[in-house]
Design a protein around this nucleic acid. Structure first.
Lengths: 254, 254
DNA sequence: GAATGGTGTTCCATAATAAAGAACATATAA
DNA sequence: TTATATGTTCTTTATTATGGAACACCATTC
C-alpha cells in the first residue's frame, strides 16, 4: 500500500489551497504543508500547467483553478438522490421558510450535497461540498441510525467528541443511546449541539432496499425553530417528506 | 518548465474519470490514458487513499470521490459575481420563464458558473462547471467583445471552428466581424449556432473598472425564444439586467 | 471440468525521476 | 544601503516511480 509521494503531496497542497479562496503564497504553504520551497514550487508548477491551480501574477498567490470545478460537474447532477429530492426539498423550504440541507455520509463525516436557502435574513454557514462531524448534527445521527453496529463503532472510534456548545454530546455511551433513540423515533434533532443558536431536525431517505442513503434537515435559529414548533408540526412534516422522497426512489417500506 | 510526471498523470486520470460518473475500470483507463496497468493501479491507489477517487468494490470500477466536491466548495460561493448576480438572474428566469446561465472565460473557453433552470419541460444540457467553446455561444461572443485584440487573436488562433449546425460561424473573419457587432450592440445572439433547436441571447457584466468579467444569457428552444420576442422584449430586458448587475458590482459606466 | 481470456493486484530490478539545498533574482522595508 | 522576505532556477544525489512479469481471481467457453 505504498503511495506515490509526489501525488500525495500535490493533493495535500490542493486540499490546503481549498481553504484559501483568495489564494496563498508559497512561503505560507511551506509552513502549512511542511515541504521545502523548491519542492512546493515544482509541484505547483505542474498543478498550474493542468489548470488545477491558478497563480495570481500580481500578488504571487496561488489558488484553485476552475479545472476543479470542471471535475465536479458530474458528481452531483448524476446522483439520483439530489435530482429526486430537490423539488421536495424546495417545497419544504418554502413551506417552513427555513434552510433545508441534503446530506450523505462520506468517510465517517457528513457531507452537504444540496442546500436550499430560505429567504430569511439569518443565513447559515454551509456550502455544498463542505463537511461536518456526525456526532453533533441531526443529519449525522440519522445516517448512523441506519448503519450497521460495526460501522457505527468504526465511526465512533475515530470520532473526537469536542463540546462545541454546552449541549454537545461528548461521550460514546450517550451518543450510542442517542442513535438508538433516533432509530426508534425516525427523526433526529440537533438541539443547539453544533452551534449554540441553531436547532435542526433531520429525517432519513431510504432507497429501494430500505437502506438509509441520505438525510435531509430543516435548520434555523432556535428562537424561530422552537421545540414547540418541532413537536407540533415539523416532526410530522419531516416524516411526510421522508416518505415521499423515499417512495420516489423506489422505497416500499412504511 | 519541467513538470512532475506522476502528478501530471494523476491529474490526467482525474480528468478522464470525470467523464465517467458511473465509474470506469482500470483496463479501460489504460486504453484511454495510455499507461500500463500497474502504473495506473498505483496512481489510483494513491488517489483513493486521499479520497479523490472511490473504488466500487463490486464492479471494480473507479470514479471520482467526494473530496473533489469538497475542494470546490469555496470556488464559487466566494465569487462576488455569482452571489451578486444570483438574485437578478433568478428574477430574470422567472420573468421570461426560460433557463438563465452565468459564465466566465477560463483558458479560452466559456465555463458555466451558475444556472437557473426554468420549469418549462424542455431542459438544456448544461451543468455548473462544464465548458463550451466561445465561437458558437452568445456568452462566448460577449466575453470576447470585452477582451483585448491580442487576447481575441490568441483565443481564435487556438479555436477549431467546427460547424455544429448549419448556422455556426466557421471562419475567423466572420467571427471577428461578429465580435465587432456584439461590441457595438451590447448583446450577442446564439442563433442556433451551437444546437439547432436552441436560441440564446447574452449580455455582459462589467466590474467597477468597466471591464467585462462575466456574461449571462437566456436560452430556450427556438420556437419559444423567437427573433420577434428577442427584438421586442428580450434585448431591452437583457440590457436592463446587465446594467443592474454591473451597477451592483460597482460599475459606474453607461 | 479443464482451458481460456479477461479482470485487478503485487513484486522487483532498473532507470528514471523527484527532492532539496544552495544560489539567484526581485521586491519591500528598515 | 542593508536586511529580510519573497519567488525562481539549478544541479547533484539518492530516493522514487516505473512497467514488465508473475499472480490471483473471476467469468465464459470448449
Amino acid at each position: 500500500m505504498s503511495n506515490v509521494q509526489s501525488i500525495e503531496r500535490a493533493l495535500t497542497i490542493l486540499n490546503k489551497l481549498s481553504e484559501y479562496p483568495d489564494g496563498i503564497q508559497i512561503a505560507r504553504l511551506t509552513e502549512q504543508v511542511g515541504l521545502t520551497k523548491s519542492t512546493i514550487h515544482r509541484l505547483l508548477a505542474t498543478l498550474v500547467s493542468m489548470n488545477y491551480v491558478v497563480k495570481d501574477e500580481e500578488t504571487d498567490k496561488y489558488k484553485l483553478g476552475l479545472q476543479v470545478l470542471f471535475l465536479s460537474r458530474n458528481l452531483l447532477n448524476n446522483s439520483s438522490i439530489v435530482t429526486t429530492a430537490k423539488p421536495y426539498l424546495e417545497k419544504l423550504s418554502k413551506d417552513v421558510n427555513e434552510t433545508v440541507h441534503l446530506c450523505i455520509e462520506d468517510h465517517g463525516e457528513v457531507i452537504y450535497i444540496d442546500k436550499i436557502e430560505s429567504n430569511q435574513t439569518i443565513r447559515m454557514y454551509s456550502r455544498i461540498g463542505s463537511r461536518a462531524p456526525m456526532y453533533c448534527t441531526g443529519v449525522g445521527k440519522v445516517l448512523l441510525s441506519g448503519a450497521t453496529p460495526e460501522h457505527v463503532d468504526q465511526v465512533i472510534s475515530k470520532t473526537e467528541f469536542i463540546p462545541k456548545t454546552p449541549y454537545t454530546i461528548t461521550s460514546k455511551e450517550a451518543f450510542l443511546k442517542e442513535i438508538e433513540t433516533v432509530k426508534q423515533q425516525g427523526y433526529a434533532l440537533d438541539n443547539s449541539e453544533n452551534e449554540e443558536v441553531l436547532r435542526c431536525i433531520a429525517a432519513p431517505i431510504y432507497d429501494h432496499k430500505g437502506k438509509i442513503i441520505a438525510s435531509f434537515s430543516i435548520s434555523g435559529p432556535s428562537n424561530r425553530v422552537t421545540m414547540e414548533l418541532i413537536n407540533t408540526t415539523l416532526i410530522e412534516k419531516m416524516k411526510q417528506y421522508s416518505q415521499a422522497i423515499s417512495r420516489n426512489l423506489g422505497y416500499s417500506g412504511s
